[in-house]
Amino acid sequence: MTEYKLVVVGAGGVGKSALTIQLIQNHFVDEYDPTIEDSYRKQVVIDGETCLLDILDTAGQEEYSAMRDQYMRTGEGFLCVFAINNTKSFEDIHHYREQIKRVKDSEDVPMVLVGNKCDLPSRTVDTKQAQDLARSYGIPFIETSAKTRQGVDDAFYTLVREIRKHKEKMSKDGKKKKKKSKTKCVIM
């Protein structure tokens, strides 16, 4: 069974824990209790493949930012979460993405942009803004509501699919490099 290491990042209060708990335990946590770091595991079937999701729910508070490099190193894919009623959390996505790329030393890291709290009427981040940002990053965008469960499975499952595509691409690139290195030079 394939294991996928997913990391949920975003500013404090955007609903990272609520999304994760909704996926794992099928219930909505409405009281806000700032996370330092929590880890969850769940076995699911995605596109006919049974897999184990190892999900790291991270601290959004700035005082825990020193811990970010460590979990970013171990993560295979990242859910970059903002709240649709919090423009600052949307603007912060850029910083999370840049930090992930720096730590992973790669421009090509599996990510999904997630606009959470889409059940709320007080939207300050337009869907088109988020779609445009995701398009500019070359990553999928999904709106979710941890409260109603809308888009929750889709967000995590899409990230797994992005990781699969990335692994497939990397193995193809690896095979191309191996083929090239088999060419021999004969000096007579």
Score class of each variant (00 low, 15 high):
S145M: 04
D132A: 07
T158Y: 08
E168R: 03
S136Q: 14
K169A: 11
T144V: 15
R149W: 04
H166K: 12
K128F: 06
Y157T: 14
Y157W: 10
E162A: 05
E168W: 02
D132T: 04
A134P: 00
A130P: 03
K169R: 09
R149L: 05
K169V: 10
Q129N: 03
D173G: 07
H166N: 13
E168D: 08
K176V: 02
R149E: 14
F141A: 02
Y137Q: 03
K176W: 02
D132W: 02
E162N: 04
A155I: 11
D154M: 08
H166E: 08
V160R: 02
H166I: 08
G138Y: 00
M170C: 09
F156K: 01
I139D: 01
L133W: 05
V186L: 07
S136G: 09
C185E: 15
V125L: 06
T158G: 04
F156W: 07
M188W: 12
Q150R: 10
D153F: 11
I187A: 15
V186C: 03
T127N: 12
D173A: 08
I139K: 03
G138S: 01
T158C: 06
S145C: 06
A155T: 03
T158P: 01
T127Q: 06
A130H: 04
L159F: 00
T158F: 06
V125S: 12
Q131F: 04
L159P: 00
K182L: 03
A130Y: 14
G174R: 01
I187K: 14
A155R: 00
A130I: 15
A155P: 09
V152Y: 11
K169P: 07
K147E: 13
M170E: 14
Q150L: 06
R149Y: 11
D132F: 03
I139V: 08
D132H: 05
Y137D: 03
D173S: 12
H166S: 09
Q150F: 04
L159D: 00
V152T: 05
K128C: 09
K169I: 11
S136W: 02
D153A: 14
E162W: 03
K165M: 11
L159G: 00
L133I: 08
G151S: 15
G138V: 00
K165S: 10
V186T: 15
K172V: 12
Y137K: 03
S145F: 04
F156I: 15
K175G: 13
G174L: 10
F156G: 01
C185R: 15
Y157P: 06
D173T: 08
L159Q: 00
T183Y: 05
I187L: 15
R135M: 10
V152H: 04
A155G: 03
R149V: 10
V160G: 01
R149D: 07
K178G: 12
R164C: 13
K180A: 13
T158R: 05
K172R: 10
Q129A: 12
K128M: 08
G174W: 00
D153G: 10
A130T: 04
R135Q: 12
F156E: 00
V160H: 02
F156V: 15
G174A: 12
V125G: 10
L133V: 06
E168V: 08
E162K: 05
Y157C: 14
L159V: 07
K167V: 03
D132V: 03
D132L: 03
C185P: 14
M170R: 07
A134N: 01
K175F: 05
L133D: 02
K175E: 15
K172T: 12
K178V: 08
F156R: 01
